[in-house]
Design a protein around this nucleic acid. Structure first.
Lengths: 377, 377
DNA sequence: TCAAGTTTTGAATCCGCAC
DNA sequence: TGTGCGGATTCAAAACTTG
């Protein structure tokens, strides 16, 4: 693999072959237009999400949330965002080989608009993939569900496109011999992997985890393929491509990001060819919510639960809380309350009645887990 | 809850009040237009997915997969599907209360188009929710990832809409005291829950699991609310609404589905009202003004309040304000000021001296609330 | 040097009533 | 319809501090 080079941002001439494994500086569409048509095997795009944030958000401890308020994420309107999306998708499509595929990541703020534009332009959606975050930011005001995932769209160039790369067998082998599902579980990018600036602050507000890109490339590219990233940012795509023996092309406007990405990629050591076969994903231990026992029919609303000695009896409500006397709350809260303790494991404290007598609801949790494990919860 | 009734499909006159807990037969938009505006609390919509299936799909054992190939799932083009989507969303929006919310479920075939149209019409997305299936159909050809989830969009009527129902505390209590995430795990609808026709075949190709609808209603409705489902199908929404003490309105074109849904809903026994109580948090507690503690004699003018570590001491004045140094104001303002913060909860920050040491004035608020309850305030 | 406790932080469309 | 303000609200993991 050749060294990382930086191309002249002022030129508009078509590029020859020296663009492989380099970062093109400049506007996304202009840079794409300089690349030869049908020249890249896959595209990974992490475009601005158009978050439309309004005012500050504080945590319960009054600290301020460091929001994404960069200029590049501000658009006048949905129409402006749509026009931007259409333009870069069109330019990207020209560059993509007929058998190539494209990945686009987004959140609910933008992904629906992006997906609709992709379909309008003739891209053929193969899957939507959910990146479930192990450690998402909470919802601090308690007014919505915790936004715990992002969505990726995987599409071929058009409906009739054949021969795209999908390493089905390798993915299956890496997933306990089960075919890989459309929901993936990864932590967000933190720790040593997260690039920092000279002040120790995060260099880029939306750096993606390398594991995510590795899964994508292992699934939909072959060694030696060319991966294009039109919103290169901190260069995760380039770092993973180099490590996995793929070529990359990045496009990025900001010099600070380009410099950091070049340095980052230069430090990457490619894997030995023999190690490129299978990369395994991480599994999390399944957590069972009490309400899922109700969902599964293992517990019925209105049922009574007891402690082991039947000193207390509490009623299950449809919302998944327990009620006893005047108070209601989670199985843990109510268990603690009746005992006058600060904390209590409701799973082992509360019991349900069955033929032989009382059994802890933890048994029901075990049963529920059997179903969840199949889903890799 | 009144019995299920079937309304005349030919009439176009506006409906009076007899539409509650009934299924309206006919075209979705025409039926919506007959309902009063701003009359339903939430909408759950499971529109046609526009699957665009092309030819038959066979399992490895050569058996044919029973695909969704009904007429109602066929559209000429994306444009036709968009027009259909826009029309029913617009009609649904008129019927929704200003503080109401809407849920729409779909797959990658249609959800991006639906989501974009929703944004175009002014709906404000609150979350996208991923339904992860424990038992999805495998991908038989091994050319894509196993399509193991569907996506739901939860949105308010418009950006400024306030006061929508979200039972945050109940959801959290039912989930091991962790806030509910945007990825949910449920099995697909099978077994006894799945409606069968006279030949023992599935009655409806896309019957949704009741647990999914129960989670939705427990999250975003109160008992007695009205739930509208403009694509009623086999009536899952009605069955769950009745069981959970909510009203429903269904719209459906096919008589066979209407008949099956009516029969199904008639067999549902509602839960006891006591089991339907929704856990509410501090936000729902009655307001207590700090000065009422003085009125009640729980705090005496001239008393000194401290923070937990006695770093600051402030004096209570007869008008219900706190004074410290040169400044005076509410318990919250002064608490924030001494800490140099923008905001502060004075009830938990300030403490009063008693025999055992310091106690937060929030304790006094609780005592005051008990008095208010006795007085029926 | 290690263990234990504390602080920090991450793509966030994050309030509702009274006046 | 806008403005003011009371006061409610967080999970996982890394980084940092203390013993």
């Amino acid at each position: 693999m050749s060294a990382v080079r930086l191309l002249d941002e002022l030129s508009h001439a078509p590029l020859k072959s020296e663009w492989l494994d380099t970062i093109l500086k400049g506007d996304c569409v202009a840079a794409l237009d300089r690349l030869p048509e049908k020249s890249v095997d896959i595209i990974f795009a992490d475009p601005p999400y158009n978050l439309q944030l309004d005012g500050d958000l504080h945590r319960p401890d009054q600290s301020k949330v460091d929001a994404v308020d960069d200029d590049w994420d501000r658009f006048e309107s949905f129409e402006a965002y749509d026009a931007f999306t259409r333009a870069w998708l069109l330019a990207a499509r020209r560059v993509l080989k007929p058998s190539g595929t494209i990945w686009v990541i987004g959140s609910y703020h933008n992904i629906f608009r992006v997906g609709a534009r992709m379909q309008d332009l003739g891209f053929w959606i193969l899957n939507d993939i959910v990146w479930r975050k192990t450690n998402p930011m909470p919802n601090f005001r308690g007014r919505r569900f915790q936004n715990a995932h992002e969505t990726m769209i995987w599409a071929s160039r058009d409906q009739k496109a054949k021969g795209y790369t999908f390493n089905y067998e390798a993915l299956k082998a890496s997933n306990d011999d089960l075919q890989m599902r459309s929901d993936w579980l990864f932590p967000i990018c933190t720790g040593g992997e997260r690039l920092k600036d000279e002040n120790g602050n995060k260099l880029h507000p939306t750096q993606k985890p390398e594991a995510l890109l590795a899964r994508i490339m292992m699934a939909s590219t072959k060694p030696g393929d060319v991966v294009l990233d039109p919103f290169f940012g901190s260069g995760t795509t380039g770092a993973v491509a180099k490590r996995l023996g793929r070529h990359f092309v990045g496009i990025e406007r900001e010099q600070a990001y380009i410099d950091a990405a070049n340095e980052r990629i230069a430090a990457v050591r490619p894997l030995e060819e023999a190690d490129l076969t299978v990369l395994s994903g991480k599994r999390a231990e399944p957590r069972v919510a009490f309400i899922s026992l109700i969902d599964n029919g293992l517990v019925v609303p209105g049922a009574t639960l007891y402690d082991a000695k039947k000193r207390w009896a509490a009623k299950v409500r449809a919302d998944g809380t327990l009620a006893i006397g005047g108070s209601a709350g989670s199985i843990h809260k109510i268990g603690a309350e009746v005992q006058g303790l600060d904390a209590c494991n409701g799973w082992t404290f509360w019991h349900y009645e069955r033929s032989g007598g009382l059994s802890p609801i933890d048994e029901l949790r075990r049963i529920a887990r059997l179903g969840m494990e199949r889903a890799g919860a």
